[in-house]
Design a protein around this nucleic acid. Structure first.
Lengths: 229, 229
DNA sequence: AAGCGCCCTCTGGTATACCAGATACCAAGG
DNA sequence: CCTTGGTATCTGGTATACCAGAGGGCGCTT
């Protein structure tokens, strides 16, 4: 008989150079505001391989994934460039987000526990009294966490996967627009209505409110956003 | 002054070995019924490089894309395997399809021309009189074309991209279930109602009908589909 | 001075060699 | 006979060398 088992953590066999390069590059891409740059940003395979201390091969495989996810575009024999989304593409992303998040809301009314739904309300505890206008940064953070929580509570891996890359863009838009046009105040009201519908397990209403809330963002961007032109 | 311009097609500079390998592999994967196989199907990089007549490098990059799209899973130092979706995953795919197609229907009521919408009705001309039960294969084909047309007429590139890979799976499910439980007859009725709502530019109704039609498919699969267990 | 073309350089694309981990098989020991 | 540990071999992962096309600079031609 052997003695008590040792507790060991499984070695993370997935941390190949390729995945590390992927994470490093994605982090780098998402942390720069590509729209603030005068020129397109180019990624140099050879330079990156020196900076990251690995050969071009894992870098190229990471690039392939980033291209598949739409963050990067490679022009043969010319270079790899960070893509800048057009206004039209950004509006499409917000609309797709609206469709998927409304599905998530539907699933929450059907599957989530009362306890899980209750966590949503707590995100806005500090804004219960008075308007969020005076603490915009904090509200923006809570706003983003709310939308992420809806996705997570749906319990659907696929929705989470499909929104993950949209989120990086939509997050920036939410942050940029929250201060305009009294949007924070109205956003808070919308969120409370959504939470109420979820609590009451009103599937159709929760779905419709969630969809309309984000479609409103798309409409707002369509009307007021001229940054890219 | 130069004479009249010659009409030339631009050389497809994107047809790298990598993209050709990608298309070949995707075609191969989608044409086999992975669920009919007793064991997981493994893809051998070296064998494929011999069969396709190129080196492992473009094969590997194609594999990377396929993995990113969820068709393939690679286990380090063990092999690359074609993934088999679980029943739960398939239901999630159908639900996501429902969410995106209902958004497409919304956009059609807002943006498409009457002429474009009219093309939808023509898809079902041959089933106008009598039930589709007697010509199931033909109806199944029209059914699939209808759902593809909704996506296309929305005019959203992003929706088309995001549904493209779902479609490969959802298509198989639609084909497999169309013969069950008088579904073809009810499907035809649903489609006609959707077309009517689109023609009347009734945004909310078209969206809701489209969503419910595909959510019904998800519910049907959830109840009756035991193939994978 | 302007237009054209050569050539150097730099890019991503591909082929290839080698590495380390996973597996199956086999032989030695109980 | 079963167990155990070594080992041959096969896998994906990585490094590297080389290729052809794209672009720019420079000098020749007119």
């Amino acid at each position: 008989m052997t003695s008590a088992k040792l507790k060991v953590k499984p070695i993370d066999t997935q941390s190949s150079f390729r995945n590390q390069a992927y994470r490093a590059l994605k982090q780098a891409i998402t942390s720069v505001n590509v729209y603030a740059q005068p020129h397109e940003i180019r990624l140099d395979e050879r330079q990156l391989s020196v900076e990251l201390g690995v050969s071009r091969t894992p870098i190229r495989e990471a690039m392939t994934v980033l291209e598949c996810e739409g963050f990067v575009r490679t022009a043969p024999r010319r270079g790899v460039f960070v893509v800048r989304k057009s206004k039209k593409e950004i509006i499409e992303m917000i609309r797709v987000w609206a469709a998927l998040e409304s599905l998530a809301a539907r699933l929450i009314t059907l599957n989530a526990s009362d306890k899980e739904i209750a966590t949503l309300r707590r995100l806005f505890d500090e804004f219960k009294d008075g308007s969020p206008e005076g603490q915009l940064d904090e509200y923006s953070e809570a706003n983003i966490k709310f939308h992420q929580a809806i996705i997570r509570l749906s319990g659907s891996e696929l929705i989470a996967d499909m929104t993950e890359n949209l989120f990086i863009h939509v997050r920036a838009i939410r942050q940029a627009t929250i201060g305009e046009d009294n949007r924070a105040q109205r956003s808070l009201i919308d969120h409370m209505k959504i939470i109420e519908a979820l609590e009451q397990r009103d599937t159709e209403r929760a779905e419709a409110l969630t969809r309309q809330h984000t479609l409103d963002l798309a409409a707002h961007v369509e009307k007021n956003w001229n940054f890219f032109e």
